[in-house]
Every structure is written in structure tokens, then in C-alpha cells.
Design a protein around this nucleic acid. Structure first.
Ligand SMILES: [Mn+2]
Ligand SMILES: [Mn+2]
Ligand SMILES: [Mn+2]
Ligand SMILES: [Mn+2]
Lengths: 229, 229
DNA sequence: CTAATAATTTAGGCATGACTAAATATCGTC
DNA sequence: GACGATATTTAGTCATGCCTAAATTATTAG
């Protein structure tokens, strides 16, 4: 029999729904629509509705859901989502630091393993890594209690001024883009001089290299920066 | 859609069936009965029949199966079973050596993770460990090509002579027994002086300790030894 | 304020991998 | 060689998580 009849279940699928909701609510904690979840998860909208109804109907629901009005995480749902996110980012850090994975390959492996490691595994790799606060993409690793400091970085595509910036983080969702960024020296911590930019062309130079770089919108959108204070 | 319609699928469940068959055929490669598989896997006999029919019916079958006459692995099935076994034992070694797990806890974690790691992960931990030949229980790790040297050890319960023996391996399937064995210093490589033994009581002394030990049948059954040459 | 459009939900199905109960085949014994 | 015990298979069901097509609800433009 499954772990509980009508209770909270923790399958890979449920984990992925919760993580997707957490990612889409943003810092303002907006409600999330079925369609945006369907897009993010690569499933049909009807499948999302189905799952949200199940998640909302359990005795200790992971989400609050009203038909046609979107969904948000309950306290239990947020706790679980942050737990899985912590797994993901610790595993990424571990693959990068201990197993010498190339940066652009850690995400895919972490995306699978995050659902299957034990609490002991989590604790042991965290200890081995010295309880890191950031993963190799520059993303913050949620603490054991779920706490996560607010980020004050912006996508490179959202800057309203030119100037000197530090790369805060790079997106882990597209291995190809990530590899290209890395080839340009754009990794967390790198210094950037951002010059004039059109909607489709982002011109900048890196600390190391003196010749100017032009990033496509796709590439630039995968980079978050903060002012070089 | 699933990875292939009517083709070979590689789910956790299929992996576990193949591994169980590999374990049960023994060195003589006997056919395996549905009931013994059902016992080992903790599922109903009818579920086994169902799965075996599916595994046998695919275009590149993992097993050869005839009703009422048991099952054995096809070449493809054996390849996959050894691949999963290699994962299992490499992961156990990794947990023990790199993450400092207690011996009796590595099995459960490996049992889950073995199905989800990539070939890259397998290769990286093997390299990190220096391509080990044995896991921490003393079990042989199949090579990448599936080769595995034949073992010439015997269960402590099957000895027909007294004398001096080396612990070859200990079973990983019961954490409690394993912990007790470890407490008695019975780990792979340990020296044992085996004295007279009744069917239910195995009397021996370890290299380190001078006072005699009595092992229950359960405990003794979990230990394989070879003559101290 | 209504009508078209877009978003969402409902209804009905499918594959996987379990289960139980009932039917059937095999085996050991006499 | 028949008979009862045991092993195995068949038949029918269920939960999960996905799908498509059809219905419904919400939103937006005129
Ligand atoms: Mn995932
Ligand atoms: Mn990351
Ligand atoms: Mn397993
Ligand atoms: Mn082992």
C-alpha cells in the first residue's frame, strides 16, 4: 500500500510540483496559475489541476487551492519545497566540489537525486562541504530550518543604469547557455563593466578580458548581478 | 509517454526484479521460481508472474520465462543486473569511505540511489575511490564490463571442518545483525578460530579477543569465510 | 454589456505495478 | 497412476500520474 491513504505523499512528482510553485510565486508570494505550472513542468494543464486538487485535499495539505484562482503553498508545502531545494543545491555543490563535475552538468543530476537522498546523506555532504551557503551557480542554499536570506540581485536584462557589477548568480536551467557563459568568464563573483545595451544586445566587458562582449538576450537573461558596491 | 511502447523499460521496479533474479540463481545459474522472487522482493506471487511476463514479452527481453518452469536472465538482463549491482556496491563504498557512514547504514541508502545515478556519477565515484574491487561488506564490485571473479568462500553455517578462517564478507541485508557482528569484531578481513559448533550455536574466537564467542544461527549465517590459507 | 477569446476544469482513458481471490498446474506420496 | 498439498497463473481491482477532448468559467475588447 502507498505510504498513507489520503494523507500527504512525497513522490518525485509531488516534490517537483512544490518546487515549481515555490519558484513561481517569487519574492512577493503571488498565487500561481495552473498554466504557468503546466509550462514550467512540461505537463498538460489538466494534469496540473488534477494534482493541485489532490494536494489540497489531503488532511495536512501542501497547497491552498481555489478553482480558477491559482494556488499557493501551505506552511507544510513551503517547508517541503525548501527541503527539496536544499537537497538540490547541496547536491550541486557536492558534485562540483567533491566529484569535479563541470558546472553545466550538476543541475540535471541534482534534479533527479534531490528526491531520493536521506536526511543522513544531506547532513553528511553538508558537513563535508563545511555547511556552504551558496551553490556553484551562486544560488543561496536554504538552511536546515528553511531560512533563506533575501536576494538583492537583478537580471542583467533588467538594469536601468550602466556601470560596474558583480555576477551574483547564473541560471542552472540550460546547460548550453551555462557553458557559453562560462566560456566568457561569466561565473558567480566575476566583475562586469556594463555598457550601453539595446533590448537584444547586451554589451559589457569582463574583469579579465579587455575586449567587449555582446550577449544575446537569452544569455543575458541567465545572469543576475548586483552593483559592485 | 513512457520511454518505449512495449520496449525495455528501466524502472526501479524492473531493476529490483533483475537484481533479485541475479542473486537467486546462484553460481550454478539455476532457474528461479516465482515464489522465491516473491519472498525476496516482498510482493505477492501474482505480481511476480505479471512482471516476468512483461519482462519476457519485450522485443529485447530481460528474462527467459516459461510458465511454471521459472525464469532466468537473458544476456541483456544480466548486463543490466550487474550494472545495478555495480552501482549498489560502488555507492556503498563511497558512503563508507567518503561520507563516513556506519557500515550497517550504507545498504539502505545504496538500495535507493543505485537506480538513479548517472553513468557519470558512477564513473566519478569509482575514480575518487581508486576503482575499488570490494565493497565494505567484502562483496566483489562487478567491473564496468560486467566481469566478476568467482568467490570461493562459504557461509560460516556450512563449514565441515574446524580451524582458522578469514572473514570474507558479511551480509548487508540486516542492519541489526551487521551491527552486532561489528561489535564482535567480525568484519571482512578479520581472523576467526572456529571451534565445535552445534546446529544452533557457533563457537569461535576472534584474532583480537581471547574469550570464546557464541553466535546464533542468524548471526553465523550472515558471515562468509575462507580458509586462512 | 455582450461576445469572442483565453484559461481552467471535468470527463474519460491509459500504463505501471501493486493487490486478492479463484482457477489450474505440478509434485510427492502411496 | 491417482490424490492431496503446494506452487503458479489468471482474472479482476486499485492508486498514481499522466494524456486528450469537451465543457465551463473568466477576461477583454468592442
Ligand atoms: Mn526534481
Ligand atoms: Mn543551482
Ligand atoms: Mn533497489
Ligand atoms: Mn554490500
Amino acid at each position: 500500500m502507498p505510504s498513507s491513504h489520503q494523507g500527504n505523499v512525497n513522490t518525485e512528482s509531488v516534490d517537483n510540483y512544490l518546487k515549481a510553485i515555490l519558484a513561481l510565486i517569487g519574492p512577493e508570494e503571488r498565487r500561481v496559475s495552473s498554466t504557468s505550472l503546466a509550462n514550467r513542468l512540461g505537463v498538460a494543464p489538466a494534469s496540473v489541476t488534477n494534482m493541485l486538487q489532490k494536494l489540497a485535499a489531503s488532511p495536512l495539505p501542501f497547497v491552498e487551492y481555489e478553482r480558477h484562482r491559482g494556488v499557493h503553498l501551505s506552511a507544510a508545502g513551503k517547508r517541503r519545497a525548501l527541503e527539496v531545494l536544499r537537497h538540490h543545491r547541496l547536491i550541486e555543490t557536492f558534485l562540483y566540489e567533491v566529484l569535479d563535475y563541470p558546472l553545466e552538468e550538476v543541475h540535471e543530476e541534482a534534479e533527479r537525486l534531490e528526491h531520493f537522498i536521506s536526511e543522513r546523506f544531506e547532513e553528511r555532504i553538508a558537513a563535508k562541504l563545511g555547511h556552504p551557503k551558496f551553490d556553484p551557480h551562486g544560488h543561496c542554499i536554504p538552511a536546515m530550518d528553511g531560512k533563506m536570506p533575501k536576494q538583492n540581485s537583478k537580471p542583467l536584462t533588467d538594469l536601468d543604469e550602466q556601470g560596474s557589477f558583480i555576477v551574483d548568480s547564473v541560471s542552472d536551467r540550460n546547460a548550453l547557455l551555462l557553458k557559453q557563459l562560462r566560456a566568457h568568464g561569466i561565473i558567480p563573483g566575476a566583475q562586469l563593466q556594463v555598457a550601453n545595451s539595446s533590448p537584444d544586445d547586451f554589451v559589457l566587458r569582463t574583469g579579465s578580458d579587455s575586449k567587449a562582449l555582446r550577449l544575446s538576450r537569452d544569455l543575458a537573461g541567465a545572469v543576475r548581478v548586483r552593483p559592485a558596491h
